[in-house]
Design a protein around this nucleic acid. Sequence first.
DNA 1: TTGAAAGCGTTACCAA
DNA 2: TTGGTAACGCTTTCAA
Lengths: 334, 334
Amino acid sequence: MVSIADVAQDAGVSSSTVSYVLSGKRSISPETRRRVEASIHRLGYHPHAGARALASSRTNVLALSMPLRTDIDVPVLMGFVTSVVTAARKYDYDVLLLTNDEGPEGLRRVANSAMADALLVMDVEVDDPRIPVSQSLSCPTVLIGLPDEPGDLSCVDLDFSAAAKRCVHHLADLGHEHIALVGPSPAVYERGTSFATRFLRGFTTVARERGLHASSQPCAPSYEGVRDCLDGILVEQPRVTGLVVHNEAALGTLLSELRNRDMRVPEDVSVVAVSPDEMAANWPIPLTTVPLPSDDIGVLAVEMAMRELEGVKSPEVRLLSPRLTTARSTAQRH
Amino acid sequence: MVSIADVAQDAGVSSSTVSYVLSGKRSISPETRRRVEASIHRLGYHPHAGARALASSRTNVLALSMPLRTDIDVPVLMGFVTSVVTAARKYDYDVLLLTNDEGPEGLRRVANSAMADALLVMDVEVDDPRIPVSQSLSCPTVLIGLPDEPGDLSCVDLDFSAAAKRCVHHLADLGHEHIALVGPSPAVYERGTSFATRFLRGFTTVARERGLHASSQPCAPSYEGVRDCLDGILVEQPRVTGLVVHNEAALGTLLSELRNRDMRVPEDVSVVAVSPDEMAANWPIPLTTVPLPSDDIGVLAVEMAMRELEGVKSPEVRLLSPRLTTARSTAQRH
DNA sequence: TTGAAAGCGTTACCAA
DNA sequence: TTGGTAACGCTTTCAA
């Protein structure tokens, strides 16, 4: 392996000079810099990450803890992951992927053995065991999601309460008086994933404010789940004309089941959905949506981690304002 | 930070002894081992990964290179990723995630800077730029997928040719004489992803052998894509009674579009699909499928990498035999 | 069965 | 603007 010493010898300088050329932490004469860079190139030198980490106590690695579930929407998850990795590279960071099957121990292990400089924790639940562990670790941590007690950990998420409110206002503005929420899978509520609760709360609040008749149903992403959910809604609210869908995985099935029941969108029922950015084109009808900006969230999570690593920023909670893009799936009530 | 020297002092032994207690690379008296382990526990010692990597030239990290596409089926991808991470942990390995937006340079960077011991490359294309790079790296590499020229790299994938054959035989055995293949997105063919071609070839070969009338259409995963694809099939083959679907992302839309056109499954048309393991339950009707065993493939990829790292195994190509599980979506031709 | 000590490749401090 | 040189924390060879 070609080391910094080889480069130094080749360029006729000391190894510390080479190091400084690389890091830019002190000024180097143009001539020296040129020679060093030439040697680096000629010898095909690459710094050794382990040696660097040892000497500088910096790994340039971020650990990303990912849930291991089937009831969560996989494309959304993947959106986070890719945007985190891509954003991290902009800061010359790499990403180590942890899954939750190791439990919170993974975070502890990685932090203790100095494999990563900061921790990103996805899909946090209200009472997530990874939270106390992260807090005990004195390693900068950013949570993607919003637990009840973030303590001094940073959080970033979509403002799901505001998102629900936008959906309800939109339907109310169009004259709908009977609306229903198709929520996430029951399992999501049960394990206390806060975005579900926050969305539901926003939904209920504004529905009441606007004097609407509103109900809500969780919805398993299977065909039966969607069918039962629609049955439930139509029993409780036979006059429903507006649907808010907060369940990306069930959306496709739901739309085709509506058609199956001869409920036309938007003539018979308006549909507004929370949906990943990219999916818009995949539906039979352009959907009015509140996009779930997984890219923005991932990028922001990385940026917040970087700020904390630079020591110039204390932990904070950032909730992104939702946008609502209107399309043909919502219309004035007939 | 508590180091190995601290442990050694606390236990009254040398630091090399502590190291050997940890690695098990030489025998230690029970008494010494006990004392050392007690000290480790008491002081909360954790080995420093960077120092280890520097001294041993082993990182215990695997790099996983992931595509960054929207036309690939995301749940399948995620299946690979999670199974790789989980399997890696069994060998005390962690996984560094690379995306293809950095291009093949990511692999080079990670290997050169000794951030990983081996490379796993997902979703390889026939003429993938990551292949020559990997070959030049003298770093054990396992490809997930099967390129035209694997050279001396290991490969693991489902035997897609055999998978197609099973599907066609199944339909032929049920008496279907006019069948069609709903293939992946055109983009997948265009960029030469070999599984698409291998599947198509298997399909065509057996269809001819069995004397069937067969056609095939690529299919974009959008609603329009599915509609156009079905239109195309019904024009070319109005008498089709059997459909082979090799397009996980389009499957849901396709089923609902069939229903929309009053084509009942399986009464009017039998459907057999290549589909991720877990999805089976999500369809309105239990589907006859050839499961895509992403878990098995991920596990196998890790195992092959481990064998190569142990130096006891030379590169090999492993194609997994497909299973076919029958369900209600395929039936005897009426 | 154990210890001493020489690396591993960088960084960063102290001098010049 | 540069060089010398201690760390950094661990593994492993050589000796005992």
